[in-house]
Deep mutational scan, measured.
Amino acid sequence: KKRTSIEVSVKGVLETHFLKCPKPAAQEISSLADSLQLEKEVVRVWFCNRRQKEKR
């Protein structure tokens, strides 16, 4: 599977969401993915990776 490069503008939206809610529910991930025209899996993994980054 190819890596998905995420646009800077999209990263901004994801970051804003992350600050409000670092662990979104599946439904939130779905609606976020739809509005950003990304796959749900890509958004889910982004949040996973972002949470791990917080720990470091």
Rank of each mutant, 00 (worst) to 15 (best):
K1D: 10
K1H: 04
K1S: 11
K1W: 13
K1A: 08
K2D: 08
K2L: 11
K2P: 05
K2H: 09
K2I: 08
K2R: 09
R3V: 10
R3W: 03
R3Y: 13
R3A: 10
R3P: 13
R3F: 09
T4M: 13
T4V: 12
T4H: 00
T4P: 10
T4A: 11
T4K: 12
T4Y: 09
T4E: 13
T4I: 13
T4L: 12
S5E: 15
S5K: 14
S5L: 12
S5V: 15
S5P: 10
S5W: 10
S5G: 15
S5R: 12
I6A: 06
I6W: 09
I6D: 09
I6S: 10
I6N: 09
E7L: 10
E7D: 15
E7F: 06
E7C: 14
V8S: 15
V8I: 13
V8D: 12
V8H: 13
V8W: 12
S9W: 11
S9V: 10
S9E: 15
S9P: 08
S9T: 12
S9Q: 14
S9G: 14
V10L: 06
V10G: 03
V10S: 05
V10I: 13
V10P: 13
V10W: 09
V10R: 03
K11Q: 14
K11H: 10
K11W: 08
K11I: 13
K11G: 04
K11Y: 11
G12R: 09
G12T: 11
G12S: 15
G12C: 11
G12V: 12
G12A: 10
G12E: 15
G12P: 08
V13E: 10
V13W: 03
V13M: 14
V13K: 11
V13P: 00
V13L: 12
V13C: 06
L14A: 00
L14Y: 00
L14E: 01
L14C: 05
L14W: 01
L14I: 04
L14S: 03
L14Q: 00
E15G: 01
E15F: 04
E15D: 00
E15A: 05
E15T: 02
E15M: 01
E15S: 01
E15W: 00
E15P: 04
T16F: 04
T16K: 15
T16R: 13
T16S: 14
T16C: 08
T16D: 14
T16H: 14
T16V: 06
H17E: 10
H17D: 00
H17F: 13
H17Y: 15
H17N: 06
H17K: 06
H17S: 09
H17L: 07
F18M: 01
F18Y: 10
F18T: 03
F18P: 00
F18S: 03
F18C: 03
F18H: 09
L19I: 06
L19K: 06
L19F: 00
L19N: 08
L19M: 13
L19A: 10
K20V: 07
K20D: 04
K20Q: 05
K20A: 08
K20P: 02
K20R: 07
K20C: 03
C21H: 05
C21M: 03
C21K: 03
C21V: 02
C21E: 05
P22V: 06
P22Y: 00
P22N: 11
P22D: 07
P22F: 03
K23R: 13
K23I: 07
K23A: 14
K23D: 14
K23N: 15
P24V: 00
P24T: 00
P24L: 03
A25I: 08
A25Y: 05
A25M: 11
A25D: 15
A25L: 09
A26Q: 07
A26E: 15
A26M: 13
A26P: 14
A26R: 10
Q27C: 10
E28S: 03
E28V: 07
E28T: 07
E28W: 06
E28N: 11
E28F: 03
E28Q: 07
E28Y: 07
I29G: 00
I29A: 00
I29L: 07
I29D: 03
S30V: 11
S30C: 07
S30H: 03
S30T: 11
S30D: 13
S30I: 10
S30E: 14
S30K: 12
S30G: 10
S30Y: 06
S31W: 06
S31A: 12
S31F: 11
S31Y: 08
L32Y: 06
L32P: 10
L32H: 01
L32V: 04
L32A: 09
L32I: 12
A33P: 01
A33I: 02
A33S: 06
A33R: 04
A33W: 01
A33T: 03
D34V: 03
D34F: 05
D34R: 12
D34G: 05
D34S: 08
D34Y: 02
S35H: 15
S35F: 09
S35T: 12
S35R: 14
S35N: 06
S35V: 06
S35L: 11
S35E: 13
L36G: 03
L36Q: 03
L36W: 02
L36M: 09
Q37W: 01
Q37P: 01
Q37A: 07
Q37H: 13
L38Q: 01
L38G: 04
L38P: 00
L38V: 09
L38I: 13
E39L: 06
E39F: 03
E39H: 05
E39R: 05
E39C: 07
E39Y: 05
E39G: 04
K40Y: 12
K40H: 13
K40E: 14
K40N: 09
K40M: 09
K40I: 04
K40P: 15
E41W: 01
E41Y: 02
E41H: 10
E41G: 03
E41I: 02
E41V: 02
E41C: 01
E41A: 02
E41R: 04
V42H: 01
V42A: 05
V42P: 01
V42Y: 07
V42M: 07
V42L: 11
V42C: 10
V42T: 14
V42K: 05
V43Q: 05
V43I: 05
V43N: 07
V43L: 07
V43T: 00
V43W: 00
R44S: 08
R44T: 08
R44K: 08
R44L: 04
V45I: 05
V45T: 15
V45H: 11
V45G: 09
V45K: 14
V45S: 13
W46E: 01
W46F: 00
W46Q: 07
W46T: 03
W46C: 09
W46G: 04
F47Y: 05
F47V: 02
F47R: 04
F47W: 02
C48I: 14
C48V: 13
C48T: 10
C48E: 15
C48D: 12
C48K: 15
C48F: 14
N49L: 06
N49M: 08
N49K: 11
N49Y: 03
N49F: 05
N49D: 12
N49A: 07
N49Q: 12
N49S: 08
R50W: 00
R50F: 03
R50A: 05
R50N: 02
R50C: 02
R50K: 06
R50H: 00
R51A: 08
R51T: 01
R51Q: 09
R51N: 04
Q52D: 14
Q52V: 07
Q52H: 11
Q52S: 09
Q52I: 11
K53T: 07
K53G: 02
K53D: 09
K53R: 10
K53Y: 04
E54C: 01
E54K: 05
E54T: 00
K55S: 07
K55V: 11
K55Q: 12
K55P: 02
K55W: 06
K55I: 04
K55Y: 09
R56E: 15
R56M: 13
R56W: 07
R56Y: 11
R56G: 08
R56L: 11
R56S: 12
